[in-house]
């Protein structure tokens, strides 16, 4: 069965692009357009990996990541952070929130797929 990747990002068009890419690479992509929806879907659908945006209206990505890592149901799911933020302390903030890896937008598809493959074998 195809591995499931939950994509949490408030940009529907980017989510669509990533979905097309993942499906073409043999993954099943599950979209979520805000933090709340993302957490709910993570708990319910138990994805193999989560792709998480940082700057979103409402709950930001750091908080989503902290909650995912605090919940026994979701804490073992690798979280790949995908962000357009230009903050320098980004990487540290993501790591301390429990994120496993950080990729900045705009990203190279090869980098994204390589990182995903690293966590789901």
């Amino acid at each position: 069965m195809a591995k499931k990747i939950l994509v949490i990002d408030d940009e529907p068009e980017l989510v669509r692009a990533i979905t097309v890419r993942f499906e073409a690479s043999g993954y099943k992509a599950i979209p979520a357009f805000d933090g709340q929806e993302g957490i709910a879907k993570a708990k319910k659908l138990k994805p193999d990996l989560i792709l998480l945006d940082i700057i979103m209206p409402g709950m930001d990505g750091y908080e989503v990541c902290r909650r995912l890592k605090a919940d026994p149901d979701t804490k073992n799911i690798p979280v790949l952070i995908l962000t357009a933020s230009g903050q320098r302390d980004l990487e540290e903030k993501c790591t301390s929130a429990g994120g496993n890896i950080v990729i900045t937008k705009p990203f190279d598809t090869e980098d994204l797929l390589a990182s995903v493959n690293k966590f789901i074998k």
Binding site: E11, E13, L14, A17, I18, V20, R21, A24, I55, A84, S85, G86, Q87, T104, K105, P106, F107, T109
Partner: peptide
Amino acid sequence: IGTVSHELRTPLATIKEFVSILLD
């Protein structure tokens, strides 16, 4: 600075990914 960065990079990411999808 943070906002400008975010606002410029987000659409770039979408454009780039769709162009890559077409190229692939």
